[in-house]
């Protein structure tokens, strides 16, 4: 067990320089709700921890002139729930973000941390993906922006290169007639890791017909799944029973879960369909309001 260095740079450039110059395992501290657990349990043994919360860009949430949002990677879910704008425009995104753990955890847990922890069961990720969010990554070669779904690669692994970290996210403006939702199933009512999670974003026209949709599933594969067949099942419909049944079947067909202490293959598969049906209804209700 080595001693760990700690730095809290005030700018992105300083952080990149520290990351690029580090030898050995280096970890980014945002909300710390996964990092500190892993550190205490000796699951990781980093040589350097870089706190990015002194960088203003990571700690702000801005609604831009075009209706889109820029969200700091270390902005906490509890902070987001206190904002009238984003909770109205993207309630599903905020729900996924603010369902992470307890009130105490929500006061710290961030989108950047939740995404980079790269758990297939991460609550915030399915809703981020269906909302079309992208991640702004800083690194030694400058900045780049990639879709959120391209960040996690497999459980615990991301596509970020050496010296790179996520500074912020872009969330598009809410489209006219748009609605989103995130639902998860947990054995209790709080505090659990999702057995299955489902994110839905859709757009309805004035007649109530779905004109576009995205459906994602968490905890049923090595990374969050985007289920195009599920979206297809409801696009062009008014979410009649037949469309919902097809949506359910598409989600069940796409789910490739495992048996573990949190759920069985059979159960997770079935729940993927149930949650998709329920989440679509909520998203549609929101789209209509």
């Amino acid at each position: 067990m080595q001693s760990v260095q700690f730095e809290a740079p005030g700018t992105v450039d300083e952080a990149v320089a520290l990351l690029a110059g580090a030898t050995g395992d280096t970890r980014i501290l945002a909300g710390g709700t996964d990092l500190l657990v892993q550190l205490r349990a000796h699951m990781i043994n980093p040589g350097l921890i870089i706190d990015i919360k002194k960088i203003d860009e990571t700690r702000s949430l801005t609604k831009n002139a075009d209706g889109s949002y820029t969200i700091g990677a270390a902005y906490a879910g509890a902070e987001a729930t206190e904002r009238d704008d984003i909770t109205k425009d993207w309630p599903g995104v905020v729900e996924g973000w603010d369902l992470i753990g307890s009130t105490q955890i929500q006061g710290r847990a961030s989108l950047g941390g939740n995404l980079c922890n790269a758990s297939p069961a991460a609550d915030s990720v399915p809703a981020m993906i269906v909302a079309g969010m992208t991640a702004n990554i800083a690194g030694p070669k400058g900045r780049r922006t990639i879709p959120v779904q391209d960040v996690p690669v497999s459980p615990g692994k991301t596509s970020l290169g050496k010296g790179e970290f996520i500074v912020s996210f872009n969330l598009p403006g809410r489209p006219k007639g748009g609605g989103d939702a995130y639902l998860r199933l947990i054995p209790r009512t709080e505090m659990d890791i999702a057995v299955v999670g489902c994110g839905v974003a859709l757009v309805l026209d004035d007649s109530g017909t779905v004109t576009s949709a995205k459906v994602s599933l968490g905890a049923v594969s090595a990374k969050v799944l985007v289920v195009d067949a599920a979206a297809k099942a409801i696009i062009g419909t008014k979410l009649d029973d037949d469309a919902l049944a097809k949506l359910d079947a598409a989600c069940q067909a796409a789910a490739k879960p495992i048996n573990d202490k949190r759920g069985t293959i059979e159960y997770r598969t079935k729940i993927a369909g149930v949650l998709a049906r329920r989440a679509v209804k909520i998203a549609a209700e929101r789209a209509g309001s």
């Binding site: 809290a8 709700t33 500190l36 706190d51 919360k53 105490q104 006061g107 710290r108």
Partner: peptide, 14 residues
């Protein structure tokens, strides 16, 4: 803000 102090580093509290 309400937090778990077990998930906050002592070093980040300056």
């Amino acid at each position: 803000r309400l937090v778990c102090s077990c998930l906050v580093m002592g070093a980040e509290c300056d």
